[in-house]
Simulated assay, not measured.
Amino acid sequence: MSERDDEQREFDLKWADGAEHKEPSARARMLAARWKDNPPGPVPFRADPGPVRSGRRSSWVSTAVVLGSVAAIIVLLGYINFRAPY
């Protein structure tokens, strides 16, 4: 890209930022139209997420599987290195 293109882009950004009227985004317009007839109810600042149990195994089981896999790989690599003739 040339320096002239950079200057032109910078000019365009300054011109756009200095606009007196800025149109809201499509999402803002959609929400305003939806909420005009049916406004949303009050929502607490931080809602209580509740328990997060989705039928997954507990974290200690996952940790044991990962550590067991790493140990098995280390033993396998050590065995291969031990048997390799040099």
Rank of each mutant, 00 (worst) to 15 (best):
M1A: 02
S2Q: 00
S2M: 02
S2A: 00
E3D: 04
E3G: 00
D5K: 03
D5H: 01
D6G: 03
D6L: 08
E7L: 07
E7S: 03
Q8M: 05
Q8V: 03
Q8L: 15
R9V: 05
R9E: 06
E10A: 05
E10H: 02
E10G: 01
F11S: 08
F11W: 13
D12S: 09
L13I: 10
L13F: 11
L13A: 06
K14D: 07
W15E: 08
D17V: 07
G18S: 11
G18I: 09
A19Q: 14
A19I: 08
E20Q: 14
E20D: 08
K22L: 05
K22F: 06
E23C: 01
E23R: 14
E23H: 11
E23L: 10
P24Y: 12
P24N: 06
P24T: 05
S25E: 06
A26L: 15
A26T: 15
A26C: 07
R27I: 09
R27F: 09
R27H: 10
A28V: 01
R29V: 03
M30T: 03
M30A: 09
M30Q: 13
L31Q: 14
L31K: 15
L31A: 12
L31E: 11
R34H: 07
R34Q: 14
W35C: 00
W35A: 02
K36E: 08
K36I: 02
P39G: 00
P39Y: 12
P40V: 00
G41S: 08
G41R: 15
V43K: 14
V43Q: 12
V43G: 04
P44G: 04
P44S: 04
P44N: 04
P44H: 03
F45M: 09
R46M: 07
R46P: 02
R46C: 05
D48L: 02
D48I: 00
P49N: 05
P49C: 00
P51I: 00
P51L: 06
V52R: 15
R53E: 12
R53K: 14
R53C: 02
R53H: 11
S54G: 14
R56K: 15
R56S: 01
S59M: 10
S59V: 13
W60P: 00
W60G: 02
W60C: 00
W60Q: 10
W60N: 13
W60S: 10
V61Q: 09
S62Y: 15
T63M: 10
T63C: 09
A64D: 08
A64K: 10
V66M: 08
V66Q: 13
L67R: 12
G68P: 00
G68Y: 07
G68R: 13
G68W: 07
S69G: 14
S69V: 12
V70F: 15
V70P: 01
V70W: 15
V70Q: 08
V70R: 13
I73N: 04
I73P: 03
I74E: 05
I74M: 09
V75R: 10
L76R: 11
L76C: 06
L77H: 08
L77Q: 07
G78V: 05
Y79T: 06
Y79N: 03
N81R: 15
N81T: 08
N81P: 01
F82Y: 13
R83S: 01
R83M: 01
R83D: 03
R83T: 02
A84Y: 14
A84D: 03
A84K: 15
Y86G: 10
Y86K: 13
Y86M: 10
